[in-house]
């Protein structure tokens, strides 16, 4: 159990460093989404199922949708450049 926790904590640091270093904003948002998913698994290991459910629904789901919609609005996704 401790080993899994350590791996998840290391994964959190790696994804947090990697997310803003990506060149394309789309990749940034996807890596940030994996950060939130690791966080949700970590909440389960910390024995807080309420937090895990909320993080998975709100922190990962809705936030990522909002980021993607913003990227479409500011023409950063492929195919939305020339309208």
């Amino acid at each position: 159990m401790t080993l899994l926790e350590d791996i998840l904590l290391l994964g959190l640091i790696v994804t947090a460093v990697a997310a803003p270093l990506c060149k394309r904003l789309m990749a940034t948002v996807i890596v940030y989404m994996s950060f939130g998913l690791l966080m949700a698994v970590l909440w389960v290991l910390l024995e807080s199922p309420d937090l895990a459910v909320t993080e998975a629904a709100v922190g990962v789901g809705v936030t990522t949708i909002l980021f993607f919609l913003t990227l479409r609005r500011i023409h950063e996704l492929k195919g939305t450049k020339d309208e």
Binding site: D50, V53, T54, A57, V58, G61, V62
Partner: peptide, 8 residues
């Protein structure tokens, strides 16, 4: 569960 996660 509860209000926050269920509503989301």
């Amino acid at each position: 569960g509860g209000g926050f996660s269920g509503g989301a």
